[in-house]
């Protein structure tokens, strides 16, 4: 049975923890709003990019000499997995769910006899993946110092990926991140980056099909060569923004439940504290009364 002082100390410590989690929840809520806004502002560009890419792809379909970024190297022996995770912990299952997906994919590929390389964006994913796949991780991108994710961050990662591709270090590149659905739910997603998977459904492509009359300056193929590397950066940028919003959402709900749990714990401890205080008073009274009776 813990003494009254022990109980008092525990209550104080849980209260302090609750204050921290509560503050973290509020900070995450504010950051979430900003991250969501950033993700929304980036949407028009990515959407236009998709449409143009689809147009060019249909215009060039069936032609020879399409760039390898589009059609791949013709092999799929070496896979590059780009795992985007957060830099900080205390965000519930956010990192774990992304890492789980990467791990499952890596295992499946290895079982098929393929070669796997992993590029980690964010420290947390690196820490978790390092345990099992230390030999497969080729690099880690640190975004710790970055307060607000800018396009240049994505460009940096994109350039790194393209460099590896040019050196024929891999054949297929897949990007892993958490798609932001609601504050409560983030969906870990795998997106094939290289070769560029045709995005959008057919209906959408058909709608923009009137572009057959477009005049291209310079040639379609040249535009495509210029566009494909840019598309890689745009996709990475989009993933990073989605990830940032997801991370804050996950942290917000994790900290919300932590605050609630702390509240429940405080209630239970206070109850126990009051009971034992009462018991002690009763005990003292009995001692006094029985002492008086014995006289």
């Amino acid at each position: 049975m813990p003494s009254l002082k022990d109980l008092r100390n525990r209550i104080a410590s849980v209260k302090a923890t609750q204050k921290i989690t509560k503050a973290m929840q509020m900070v995450a809520a504010a950051k979430l709003r900003r991250a969501q806004l950033a993700a929304e502002e980036a949407r028009p560009y990515a959407e236009r990019m998709d449409v143009v890419m689809a147009n060019l792809a249909t215009a060039l379909a069936g032609q020879d000499g399409a760039p390898p970024l589009m059609v791949g190297t013709g092999k799929d022996d070496v896979h590059l997995l780009v795992a985007c995770t957060s830099e900080r912990g205390l965000c519930g299952g956010f990192n774990t769910s992304i890492v789980r997906m990467v791990r499952a994919k890596a295992r499946a590929l290895l079982a098929d006899g393929k070669q796997v390389k992993i590029l980690c964006v964010g420290k947390k994913g690196f820490d978790q993946l390092n345990r099992e796949f230390a030999s497969l991780i080729i690099d880690q991108v640190d975004l710790r110092e970055v307060k607000r994710i800018g396009f240049s961050n994505a460009q940096g990662i994109g350039a790194r990926v393209l460099e590896l591709f040019d050196e024929s270090e891999f054949d297929v590149c897949t990007l892993f991140f958490a798609r932001f659905q609601t504050v409560m739910t983030q969906v870990p997603t795998a997106l094939q980056l290289i070769p560029a998977a045709p995005s959008g459904d057919d209906e959408e492509n058909a709608m923009s099909g009137s572009n057959a009359a477009y005049e291209y300056e310079p040639e379609e193929s040249e535009i495509l060569v210029d566009l494909l590397p840019r598309n890689v950066s745009v996709q990475i940028f989009r993933a990073l923004l989605e990830n940032a919003a997801s991370e804050q959402g996950a942290r917000m709900s994790a900290m919300d439940s932590a605050t609630r749990n702390a509240g429940e714990m405080i209630d239970a401890l206070t109850m126990e504290y009051n009971r034992s205080r009462q018991a002690q008073i009763t005990k003292e009274l009995i001692e006094i009364i029985s002492g008086a009776e014995a006289l």
Binding site: V52, A213, E215
Partner: peptide, 19 residues
Amino acid sequence: PGSEGDFAILKGHAPVMST
């Protein structure tokens, strides 16, 4: 500022795509 030279766009321009 198109990569193959500047060009001006007015209403009713033919569809063009340029870097």
